[in-house]
Design a protein around this nucleic acid. Structure first.
Lengths: 142, 142
DNA sequence: GATATTGCTTGCAATATGCAAGTATGATAC
DNA sequence: GTATCATACTTGCATATTGCAAGCAATATC
């Protein structure tokens, strides 16, 4: 799919880069739930369709937000991971979480996590980045 | 349009609330460019189609992010403005701007604004909120 | 070598978008 | 007051995107 730049506005740039209804969920899965393989993303609660997932993974790779790592042990399952460009979306994700936690009474966001994001932002960001580098998983997808 | 909640994830909540390719641009126009009338939004660089604009304004009003104020002077032109729920999206918008400014070499984001968003976040947020309350315009849409 | 798993691709119906034209209401000019 | 204009939409229709189900190819397991 070919889309020409609608404007040079930074909000628009973000929207055109990852602003569809699925990309951020993939990024979320990589950032917080330690998902790495194609099948992992398919299993998420929101039930992304397989053709859409394939398309979004390709697109996110193209724009440099994720990369695909060959898997030697099982050649069928390449691993997806966030690039630095992808990890840099963490502050934005945290603000989204804070906002949604405030306005969605049914939110699944853990209270203490939201509190950390509000009151201890920088520290939380560092913690998560460290965890990501070491391949630790922040939350267990139920 | 009828959408059922895909999950209780806060990221998903945000996506389902304003996560299409146009809503955030309307919110941006209200937050930073002092746009208030239907025609103002139509004039934005990204060229939203009039039927889509009408749909998104209605939807954003429904979810409580904007409100519509009757205009006594010219009854044709009702004014749209952000609610508190809408203004609370400001931190997220700032993070988006910081990210896009970092990765889009052609970004239109003013350097000093981005610097403020990075290094003086809380102060900038207060300034913008004050400006919004007083109906001041932060940037002039060119 | 046969079977199962995994990561896709393909085909197609349903939905959403984008464009152009039309309409209804209120303002302005005479 | 009437004609004209401005503004905020709505409508119709072609095109693009999504969502679902089935299929396929490569690799792993038995």
């Amino acid at each position: 799919m070919k889309k020409s730049r609608r404007s040079d506005c930074p909000i628009n740039f973000a929207l055109q880069t990852f602003g569809d209804t699925w990309s951020l969920l993939i990024i979320r899965d990589l950032m917080f739930f330690g998902k790495t393989y194609y099948g992992d993303f398919l299993k998420s609660d929101e039930h992304i369709a397989t053709n859409i997932l394939a398309d979004r993974l390709a697109r996110l790779e193209q724009v440099g937000i994720i990369r695909k790592i060959p898997n030697i042990k099982d050649k069928r399952k390449d691993a997806y991971q966030l690039t630095e460009k992808g990890v840099d979306l963490l502050p934005m994700l945290l603000e989204i979480i804070v906002w949604s936690a405030k306005y969605d009474s049914k939110t699944a966001a853990p209270k203490d996590f939201v509190a950390q994001a509000k009151n201890n932002r920088e520290k939380l960001i560092k913690q998560i980045k460290t965890a990501l580098k070491q391949g630790e998983v922040l939350f267990q997808p139920k």
